[in-house]
């Protein structure tokens, strides 16, 4: 005789109707951290952050006595300076690791759900395509921002703690918004492109390879076009054909660093926006079709 009746209770608890995207994000992060490669990339990113922390600490220790020989050397050589170039350089290197994580996490985000038939099960629940798409995007953008903006804020805080003054504060606060903007300029188009590839292609490997090929192709086209442009002194706006070049250019302008190409900010921004909007449109179109087929 069974010791209990085989049944389940009716659900009478509260039903949440908002922020379902956060559930998608949380689950994606849980799944992401089951892979060792993610930890490996995070460790490498952590080393880089540690190196920059040492940089800021060394600079501030050296500058404690501005009249010392070490301080004079640092000022003259301009090697350890904590300035816009430090943050731009930090974000450029950090971006490579972030791109790898976004590529790994995002290339399977949609196609694996489609291949494992999970998307049908998910949309059979009260989940809209908006929540699903936003949840997936926030996962990638969140990971990217945590590895770029958060360390920048930590470095700024450290710099202020080690050299507390109104001047240091004013100077370093001005690096926050360029850092956030530059991170977003990289992360948003990359996340949308990876998600669009994942939504378009049937397998994670294909999606990853497709994004890498796009980046390489963009770089190759840029090299060819820039050779022609420079040789014939043609319109420099052609440099905006390469989205990574356009993003780098915007970064240089945001941090008031010398620019490599004669592009206007509007041309560079247009290039990034076109890429992001195109990728976003493909992504939204594909995800939407998964919920309701027209």
């Amino acid at each position: 005789m069974p010791v209990h009746r085989r049944t389940y209770r009716s659900y009478e608890g509260d039903i949440r109707r908002h922020f379902r995207w956060a559930i998608i994000t949380a689950q994606d992060l849980r799944v992401l951290f089951k892979f060792r490669i993610v930890y490996l990339l995070l460790i490498v990113a952590g080393f880089h952050i540690f190196f920059r922390v040492m940089h800021v600490v060394s600079y501030n220790i050296a500058m404690q006595d501005p009249n010392s020989v070490v301080a004079m050397l640092v000022r003259e050589a301009n090697l350890l300076a904590v300035d816009g170039a430090l943050f731009l350089g930090f974000l450029r290197i950090q971006w490579l690791l972030v791109f790898l994580i976004i590529l790994f996490a995002g290339s399977g985000a949609i196609c694996n759900d489609v291949r494992n038939n999970l998307i049908e099960v998910l949309f059979a629940k009260p989940l809209s395509w908006r929540d699903y798409a936003l949840g997936k995007f926030v996962t990638l953008a969140g990971v990217g921002l945590v590895l770029t903006v958060v360390p920048v804020l930590a470095l700024i805080l450290l710099h202020n703690l080690m050299a507390p003054s109104w001047d240091t504060f004013n100077e370093s606060v001005a690096w926050i918004w360029p850092s956030v903007a530059f991170s977003l300029l990289y992360i948003v188009p990359a996340a949308l492109t990876v998600l669009a590839a994942s939504a378009l292609l049937p397998q994670q490997n294909y999606a990853g390879a497709c994004v890498v090929a796009l980046v390489m192709l963009s770089g190759a086209i840029h090299q060819i076009v820039s050779t022609l442009v420079d040789a014939h002194h043609m319109w420099a706006g052609f440099h905006a054909l390469s989205v990574p070049t356009a993003i780098n250019h915007l970064g240089e302008r945001l941090f008031h660093e010398p620019v490599e190409y004669e592009l206007t900010a509007a041309q560079a921004l247009a290039s990034v926006l076109v890429a992001a909007v195109a990728a976003g449109a493909v992504y939204v179109w594909r995800v939407r079709r998964c919920e309701v087929l027209r």
Binding site: I15, V31, K34, N116, N117, L118, E120, V121, A124, K125, P126, L127
Partner: peptide, 16 residues
């Protein structure tokens, strides 16, 4: 869909 339950024909699983 709050009141619908769906068992699809094909296998549906999150392997990891």
């Amino acid at each position: 869909r709050r009141r619908l339950g769906y068992v699809p024909e094909r296998e549906a699983a999150a392997h990891t």
